[in-house]
Structures are given as structure tokens and as C-alpha cells.
Amino acid sequence: MSVENAPVVDVDEAAIPVEKKMYYRFESNDKKEFRVSELAIQQSETLNRLVEAMGYTSEDVENKPAIAIENIDGKTLKLVFQWCEHHKGEAIPVDDGSVPKIVEIPEFDAKLMDIDNGLLFKLIWAADYLNIVQLLNVSCKKVANMAQGKTPAQLRRVYLLPSDEEDEAAKRAAQEAQDPRAREVEEEFEERKRQGGNSFF
């Protein structure tokens, strides 16, 4: 995808410093490109360190290939960068280790996370991977809120958690129907797990 056609995350112009605006280009694992402001990137410790280490100039950003984020798809990355742009310039919270952790979900974040559970878990994983502390806090809070007041039976349904019997039945079924392709998939999954689980979704 060319730079001109890349989807651009909405930016609040008024909040951006007047003197110099630098936008980095990132590419998801499904080749979707995003332009993200320098200030927004600061919300992600991982990306911030990355761009600092690269030392790009404004020209480099335009002329060099977009920075590839190979583990995250475009749909998830779009949410991540929307969140970063909205919260740019905000202080990054420090974990005080308190239990239970008290987190409020702002209105913008609540709307942003009004998504299906699959995407929500991808967002959590991306926030963890990119080390975006506050996004991790609010997305985890959203998942924790789903458990509120639920019975074990309801939790199984909400989080798609099998019971012992279902776990056992699934294992048996998998063993019985082990065709070469199924074995391949299983081996691939095990291999990924051994490699540290980076290719999560």
C-alpha cells in the first residue's frame, strides 16, 4: 500500500505542538499502514524506544519504508493508534502494585472498546506487547468487568471457558480425528508456544 493511500488515524490538530510535527509510519502484519504522531507514540514504551533508537528525521520518515509491526493486525493496530492519539501527552501511570487494582474507564476508551471479545483480547495483547500501560489497564478492566457478579456457569459462557468434562471431551475428539492437517496445526501451535508465544493470534 502506498503512503498516500494509507489509512490515517484521526488527529486532534489543536493538541499538536505548532513548531514541529513528525508522523511516523507503521505497518501491520496485514500490510495496513498508519501515520502516528511523535507525541502519541510516547504512550508506547516499546515504540518510543524503537523510534528513538532509529533516530529518523522527517525526511527519513517519508522516504524509508514504514516500520513493520509483524505481530499485530491492522484492525487492532488502528484501535491502538486511535487510543494513543487521543491520550497523547498524558502522563503514563506507574503501577503501585495495589490489589485490587482500581481503574476507571474514560468515555472515549469505553466507546473505543465497544468491540467483540476476540478483538478486545487482541487489543490487550497488543497493549501488553507495545507496553502501553494505560491502554493495558483499561482493556484489562473491561475484561475484568465482564466477570462481575457472574456464576461459574456464566463465566464459562462469557470467556468461552470449557469445564473439565468439556476439556476432556475435546481432547478425546481431537485425538480420534487426528488427520495429518490437524496434527500439523497442533505442532505449529506447540512450536509457537515454545518460541515464547509472540504469534498469539
Binding site: 471479545n117 483480547f121 495483547w125 506487547y129 470449557p162 468439556e166 471431551a169 481431537a174 509472540n198
Partner: peptide, 17 residues
């Protein structure tokens, strides 16, 4: 549970993150 063989996202999170 739909797709009983598929690991749940929360379970996967425990391993991957």
C-alpha cells in the same frame, strides 16, 4: 461452549501475556 476444542482467549492470554 461453541468450538470446545479452541482455547479460550483468556486462557491463551495466561500463556502468551
Amino acid at each position: 461452549i461453541k468450538n470446545p476444542g479452541k482455547p479460550s482467549p483468556l486462557r491463551k492470554l495466561a500463556e502468551a501475556a
